[in-house]
Design a protein around this nucleic acid. Structure first.
Lengths: 155, 155
DNA sequence: ACAATCCCGACTTCTTCGGGCGAGATTTTA
DNA sequence: TAAAATCTCGCCCGAAGAAGTCGGGATTGT
């Protein structure tokens, strides 16, 4: 039930890009992201490239190059991102909408485990499909303003 | 965000044991479970042993030996089982209650990703903590009674 | 031209997953 | 008491994936 490091890094990178997002085509250097979020640069490169193929970010090459969101942050959901870098959100693939695979149980339509897992899937999908990069950035801003201890109460 | 084969097998085995559960100490042979659920016997052995150490099942040795639930099926939640065989339910360990690990982000209390992941965690925990083995068996019985196609509407 | 930056694929290293195997302990039954 | 069925325990294994690393190439601004 876990997010890989890769997935976490992807979200962290998008948090940075979301914060710096502007309508003009200003970009953020990969080094900058790597520094801010403490992510191995070479690894981050791969991840951003991957996000590029999903049209979540876009890049500019050359000396003043870097990355930026390919769309406004309100238009990028965490579900989309996680699905692309991690695959299915469902705990078992036989309840996944876009990564469906038949499982080995004798009768899928009457599998009780499947019915529970479907609920679990829906629960998590509901969360990550609702939250956009913009929302995540808003939370970050809010959390930064608060005094240190206070944050724990609202999580 | 996925359950391993191991975890799925564990649930499937408990489904069988739950269905056959009686107050007296009747047991189910491992071979029986393996056949019903189509799980490699040797592998299932490991898994049941593991569940035994969690006091979810208990065993009887010898010629009329086998496994049974260590408690009534209403007293075993899926959360407990999954936590034992898979580890944390949380998508990142920094939001896990019982498998907490510090993550690499600079300020955990103010991490926006963390706050989202916490919501996701709570959502899935709510599901699997509510559902017991008994409930799962009840669903199985219900699904078995229904006509084939109908099941999909209620999932 | 040159330096900074992204681009891309191959490679490595480590761990985990999904099992298999053999030998031993325990219990029932003939 | 011997045999047979069953669980017990630990070691081993191959394949796959995770988390990076690396080298070199392509672009672009100055």
């Amino acid at each position: 039930m876990k997010l890989s490091t890769r997935g976490e890094y992807a979200l962290r990178a998008l948090l940075v890009l979301g914060r710096d997002y502007q309508e003009d085509d200003s970009v953020v250097r990969i080094q900058e992201i790597s520094d801010q979020q403490n992510i191995p640069k070479r690894f981050l490169e791969q991840i951003l490239n991957d996000l590029k193929s999903a049209r979540v970010v876009e890049s500019k090459r050359g000396v003043a190059g870097g990355y930026r969101l390919a769309r406004p942050p309100e238009k990028i959901t965490l579900a989309e991102v996680i699905r692309h870098v991690e695959g299915a959100l469902a705990p078992v693939s036989c309840v996944s909408e876009r990564f469906y695979e038949k499982c080995s149980c004798p009768d899928e339509a009457r599998c009780a485990i499947r019915s529970v897992m479907k609920e679990a899937r829906d629960a998590v999908v509901k969360v990550v499909e609702q939250v956009t990069v913009a929302e995540m950035c808003a939370r970050a801003r809010k959390l930064e303003q608060e005094p240190v201890g206070a944050a724990d109460f609202m999580i």
